[in-house]
Design a binder for these strands. Structure first.
Lengths: 204, 204
DNA sequence: GTGTTACCGTAACATCTGTTACGACAACTG
DNA sequence: CAGTTGTCGTAACAGATGTTACGGTAACAC
């Protein structure tokens, strides 16, 4: 078995985190492929290539499964976005890059959009999951807000905030439209929309 | 019992349509309140104040339940939007009115946004329901496109289309953000965003 | 070797799910 | 008065679902 943590080999210690990650990826896969109605413990176990026993040994229950998968996806998105931001030369380039990353431009990002929507749908009527969503979403909005403020330093805060709302809302909406009707909203169409939006707000 | 259709009284004929409507309203209610995971025949029957038997007598199955509830909501939205459009003095006023109607400005419209998201989440992995979504959504987009074209007659079609995409996407995204985090995205914030968007695109 | 401990798969459990079948009841016809 | 027909509630069914419990196995300690 794997033995990782610490310099000295701690015995009989399976790599719980790696298992949680594998299981969470299975959650994403099912959420994107079959929808939340088919997200069952058994389906997750089958997708992850393990038994329902292992799933239940790693997570206390179905809700924890959803919460962890959500947090993990958020963490992954964050590092990706931070890299994009670091690689960008200017705040405006960074802004465009991270907004584009949030749309359904590729097969992968379209699937991710479906996953986010699944999490959202699962949190209806569940204050705990809604709180998770709000926290993650506010972090996202703050990031966009910071970049907009850096891109237009002379704007008043209120103007920044409405522009951020428009950008965040439009990209989120575009991702949704794009992954349910890619024929109408192709990647090129989405990018054209984003660019026109940035031009319209004077942020291009 | 009620007897409606035809000039001659057709006997023993319950008002199926009214029952379907009542049941569909129960579907909306559950979708907005508890989420799609709790949308069961029994929950719908309880919410509608009838038995599961009646639900199954009115609809061939659960999917038909969803499809009808979705179509009915679309039809209701359409008449509401058409009235708004008719009451508006100018294409630009009509455009703003119908876009505002699609956001989460009131408690009712926030619930509706949740219902739409529930339908969307339910259609993941189901080509039949996705087709329904595409049809309805394209009709919505075409309506916005017509109004944008009327508001800016000298625009090229491509420019119209990207603006429409931005408007439709932003309002859809705003509705989603608004109903999950009303503290961050109040009605006033949403309206300010819409107005700034219309100004930015030269459609105000 | 024996004992111990972590790991995790199997199987069971109670509950819930969509759906079907049957029967009772009421309204209408003749 | 039957006889017929539409209406719809009750109860059952098979399958799925989240969760729990138990047992076996392998790695380690001694």
């Amino acid at each position: 078995m794997l033995r990782k943590r610490g310099e000295r080999a701690i015995a009989r210690r399976a790599d719980h985190e790696a298992q949680q990650e594998r299981i969470s990826k299975a959650v994403w896969s099912i959420l994107a492929g079959k929808g939340i109605e088919h997200l069952t413990i058994r389906a997750v176990a089958a997708e992850a290539g393990c038994t329902t026993g292992l799933v239940m040994h790693r997570f206390p229950g179905r809700k924890a499964l959803l919460a962890h998968a959500r947090d993990l996806l958020h963490a992954r998105t964050r590092v990706r976005v931070e890299r994009l931001e670091a690689e960008a030369g200017t705040p405006r380039a960074a802004l465009r890059a991270i907004l584009a990353q949030g749309m359904a431009l590729s097969e992968d990002s379209a699937q991710e959009a479906l996953v986010w929507m699944g999490f959202l749908a699962a949190s209806v009527g569940d204050e705990e999951l809604i709180a998770l969503h709000r926290k993650n979403n506010r972090a996202w909005r703050d990031r966009v807000e910071r970049l907009v403020a850096a891109s237009a330093p002379d704007w008043e805060p209120a103007r920044v905030r409405t522009a951020v709302f428009a950008l965040v809302g439009a990209t989120e909406g575009a991702a949704q439209l794009g992954c349910f009707d890619p024929a109408s909203y192709s990647a090129a169409t989405q990018e054209a929309m984003l660019d026109s939006l940035l031009v319209a707000y004077g942020l291009s």
